[in-house]
């Protein structure tokens, strides 16, 4: 099968980029990234700079890959990362526009690669639980309601790829944050830091210049892990509750 690709080429963060047209011969058994590998081999053979794109596990679980295909994050197949998208979902002669995630918080590093360390800073602000190190606790020492465990697992599926931000007209990170806040907030281990977590993570996202949620749902439609907008409501609920009830830690004499 023959494909016409229009790919965003940008040398580095400082230089301007543009769409460049390529043609590539692929077969339907290839994954989308393998098709780009073929294109890159051709480019290298011609002495041109290969197209840079993020990838790691290529089995849909690491969250490294992702770019826009014809205006849809991760391409046309629902619940799929671009590495798990196969060429059989396209037909010969298709014209595809490949663009990087676009957000102020995700500056383009090169071609289709963006810097997603803003997500790391949001996690560092509160997307964790503090546990005592040492020997592992007993398996079922803390009871967790089955339904809560299931819902927490649904939210924990988030791989932090950034597709939600890319699809959102406001470049909002709400779905990403909501997944983390729901995941930790549903489990007993997440309770001690629950209020502080949501306050700090939301403040961090606002500092990183992610936009606001307008409840339009483009994020959940492209999420490769099926994270639901329902979780954004949970985050909003947690945030409002924490805003009105959070008590600052008191500084005690001789501490710190």
């Amino acid at each position: 099968m023959k494909l016409i690709l229009h790919i965003w080429r940008q040398k580095n963060q400082a230089s301007p980029g543009k769409m460049v047209r390529y043609e590539v011969e692929a077969n339907e058994h290839m994954s989308f990234l393998e098709m780009l590998d073929v294109l890159n081999e051709n480019l290298i053979a011609k002495g041109e700079e290969p197209v840079a794109f993020d990838h790691d596990c290529r089995e849909g679980i690491c969250g490294s890959c992702g770019f826009m295909i014809n205006g849809v994050a991760h391409g046309p197949l629902p619940n799929t990362t671009v590495c798990q998208l196969h060429m059989r979902h396209f037909k010969s002669g298709d014209e595809l526009y490949l663009e990087p995630w676009r957000a102020a918080a995700f500056p383009v590093i090169k071609d289709l690669v963006v810097d997603r360390s803003a997500f790391d800073r949001i996690i560092a602000a509160g997307g964790y639980i503090s546990v005592a190190t040492g020997s592992a606790p007993d398996g079922n020492a803390i009871p967790v309601r089955k339904q809560d465990a299931d819902l927490a697992m649904d939210a924990a599926q988030c791989i932090g790829c950034g597709a939600c931000v890319a699809a959102c007209p406001n470049a909002s990170a709400s779905l990403f944050m909501a997944a983390k806040i729901t995941h930790l907030g549903l489990l007993p281990q997440g309770q001690p830091e629950r209020k502080e977590r949501v306050l700090k993570m939301v403040a961090a996202a606002n500092r990183e210049l992610f936009g606001s949620c307008t409840n339009i749902g483009e994020c959940e439609a492209v999420c490769p892990k099926g994270i639901r907008m329902e979780f954004i409501g949970r985050m909003n609920r947690d945030y409002l509750n924490a805003s009105f009830t959070y008590q600052e830690e008191k500084e005690m004499a001789g501490v710190g």
Binding site: W8, M19, G71, Y97, R102, A104, A105, N170, S172, A221
Partner: peptide, 15 residues
């Protein structure tokens, strides 16, 4: 401000 550079192609699929 959150998206200073827009897309060449952008499809709305759910909204």
């Amino acid at each position: 401000k959150a998206r200073p550079v827009g897309y060449v192609r952008k499809k709305n699929i759910a909204s």
